[in-house]
Simulated assay, not measured.
Amino acid sequence: MTFSTLPLTTPLSRRSLGLLALAAAGGTARAQAYPAKPIRLIVPFTPGGSSDILARAVGQELTKSMGQPVVIDNVPGAGGSIGAERGAKAPADGYTLLMGHIGTLAVNPSLYPKLAYDPVKDFAPVAWVARVPNVLVVHPSVQANTLADFVALARAQPGRIAYGSGGNGSAAHTTMEYLKLVTKASLLHIPYRGTAPSVTDLLAGQVQALFTGAPALLPHIKAGRMRALAVSSPRRIRSLPEVPTVAESGVPGTKGFEADQWYGIVAPAGTPPDIVRTLNEQVNKALALPDVAARLAGEGAEPTPTTPQAFGALIAAELQRWAPVIKAGGIKPE
């Protein structure tokens, strides 16, 4: 019995092989050509805030270095959860990214019981962009010159010292609740609709304390209109070198205290590792540029270039840090 075979030289075979070769070449070209179209960077807050400013500073440099526009898409609502959900459910092709921060990636999972995304399972960490230290300040009328004085006063007069915040679940709220948890201080929370009105009322003496991002406070500290007692970062900050960290205070329970606001870029889970690597390298290059560093400094932010793996480790650690704080403080979203 004989079997006939179709020679590879027939027109049909040559055509099939040609199509396979073109498909393989096309796949290689697509991988090498990233990005081949504009990149969308979701900012889950309104324009003008720190997330938006940092996203635009980095996005502008990525546009130059990657040869495609990085388009900022502001999607505010529910403490950043609406925009974060949209980022999580986007195609994992490197063309939709999210500017995440401590709220969307570490606080919201404990704050919102039915959150529509998981910050670990639904995102691939790309780049840690910056950290913004919080500063604990008091009105000049408060008889406290150190953190130890402040804690002692709060313990001696339970609930008599009121502190402001930008709203329930805001960084200023969770940071002060963290301080309360580790020091056993007793303070009264007064939420505002944003940081600005909380600062205004502190200046007027309507509240006595505030623990929020440095940029909103620095001019008033320098002018003597409020007194800085401590910073939330693991080391002192350049703009306030004379102000100790919380961990330096010696107050029992404060060893290892760290509560900076932080910002970083994530992509939908499943984004190809080579694309994540490319984005990480380009973001880190942008953060090293003097112009970008200056823009970040204007926001009180410190660049934090690192690997995707290190950023992922930060997210996981922060989820563990804030869950007990939110539970102990009974913090609920507005």
Rank of each mutant, 00 (worst) to 15 (best):
W128Y: 14
G100I: 12
P113E: 11
S141M: 03
G87F: 08
K114A: 15
P76C: 13
A154G: 08
I102N: 14
V135S: 05
G164L: 06
R86A: 14
G167V: 09
G159L: 06
A185W: 00
Y117T: 07
G167P: 11
K89G: 05
V107K: 00
L188R: 07
S110A: 12
I161L: 15
F150L: 08
A84K: 05
T104I: 10
Y163G: 02
A106K: 01
V182D: 09
A185D: 06
A78E: 15
R86Q: 13
Y112I: 10
E177W: 03
T174V: 15
P125S: 09
V129F: 01
S110L: 02
L147W: 05
Y112K: 07
D93W: 11
L153P: 13
R160Q: 12
V129C: 10
V182P: 04
I82R: 03
T174W: 03
A130Q: 02
A172Y: 00
N108C: 02
D149R: 03
N108G: 03
A84G: 03
G167A: 09
L187Q: 05
S165R: 08
G83S: 04
D122R: 08
T146A: 12
G79E: 13
I102D: 13
P91I: 14
A130E: 01
K114Y: 06
K184D: 15
G167N: 04
G100L: 15
N134C: 12
R155D: 10
L98W: 04
H173N: 15
K121N: 07
L181I: 02
K180R: 15
E177V: 05
A172T: 01
G159K: 02
G87V: 10
P158H: 06
T174D: 00
T104K: 08
V107P: 00
K180G: 01
G103T: 10
G103P: 04
L187T: 02
L111D: 06
Y117I: 07
G83H: 03
N108F: 04
L147R: 05
F123Y: 15
G87E: 12
V137Q: 07
A124S: 08
A162H: 08
V120I: 14
P133K: 00
R131L: 07
L115Q: 10
E177H: 02
A84V: 01
A92M: 09
A127E: 01
A106H: 00
M99G: 07
S81V: 04
M176W: 06
V138P: 09
F150D: 02
G100R: 02
A148K: 06
L115A: 01
D93R: 05
P125R: 11
A127R: 01
P119F: 11
I161G: 05
